[in-house]
């Protein structure tokens, strides 16, 4: 379980998160929507400790992420992350991209790391590309590679930061399908997304972010059909 309470985060004078309270249960899929600049990415970075926080707490399975004595490198193995810019490692083959962290972080023997990588590449439908370099892949394939790379750490949570926003429209589907597959397999996911169809169909709950606060959170039916907040309604009407 991820438990966030009273979370404040700022960059210098810029207050970005202004008191976030949120719990994500095991097996839940949460979509996070909201205008650009409202702090959605920052929240994900805080959850896996890539950004320090000013106040409040984030606990992952009871472990305080931002406590001094927390082994972040170990904790991050639980928290797979997929970025908007897919960030494949261009100097490594597809297989090496996925096998590297299992080998040097999980310290698996080379053979096992390779097996894990192969399994996850099959999982996302890249089993026939293992010897290619990322430069030879399409954006959609590179994003699926990034998903496989995160999965190879056998995480318990997956954080997606606008995984499809940088893709050509015709490539969005294959990535969303992969995310959908993970959701069906029971992965716990927090998905920052602009894909309202995905948010509605796949998530258990949807959170609407507004200026560093969760303006409204609830099941997709509520958010998309019967939003309580005027701001939520206004945001959704603009997006459609």
């Amino acid at each position: 379980m991820i438990e966030i309470s009273d979370l404040y985060k700022s960059f210098g004078d810029l207050q970005v998160l202004k008191g976030i309270n949120l719990q994500v249960e095991k097996g839940e899929v949460l979509s996070v929507i909201g205008a650009s600049g409202s702090g959605k990415s920052t929240l994900l970075y805080c959850i896996n400790g890539l950004e320090p926080i000013q106040k409040g707490s984030i606990k992952v399975d009871g472990v305080e992420v931002h406590a001094k004595d927390t082994d972040l490198n170990k904790l991050r193995q639980k928290l797979g992350m997929v970025f908007q810019q897919w960030n494949s490692f261009p100097h490594l083959t597809v297989l090496e991209n996925v096998a590297l962290a299992p080998r040097i972080v999980r310290k698996l023997p080379k053979r096992d790391a390779r097996d894990v990588a192969l399994k996850q590449l099959e999982h996302v439908g890249l089993g026939d590309k293992i010897e290619s370099y990322p430069g030879a892949l399409s954006g959609g394939q590179q994003q699926r590679l990034a998903i496989a790379r995160a999965l190879a750490m056998e995480p318990e949570y997956m954080l997606f930061d606008e995984a499809t926003s940088a893709l050509d429209p015709e490539l969005v589907g294959e990535v969303l399908d992969t995310m959908r597959l993970l959701a069906e397999e029971g992965m716990t996911m927090i998905c920052v997304t602009h894909e309202m169809g995905f948010a509605r169909d796949v998530s258990d709950r949807v959170a609407f972010f507004h200026e560093g606060l969760i303006e409204e959170i609830g099941p997709p039916k509520q958010i998309f059909g019967d939003a309580r907040s005027e701001r939520t309604k206004k945001f959704l009407s603009k997006i459609r």
Binding site: F83, N87, I104
Partner: peptide, 20 residues
């Protein structure tokens, strides 16, 4: 972002520099 991606996989800062 390359470093962020490496760190998000649990690599140490040294590993991210050396490997990525």
């Amino acid at each position: 972002t390359q470093i962020r991606a490496a760190r998000s996989l649990g690599m140490t800062s040294a590993q991210a520099y050396l490997r990525i």
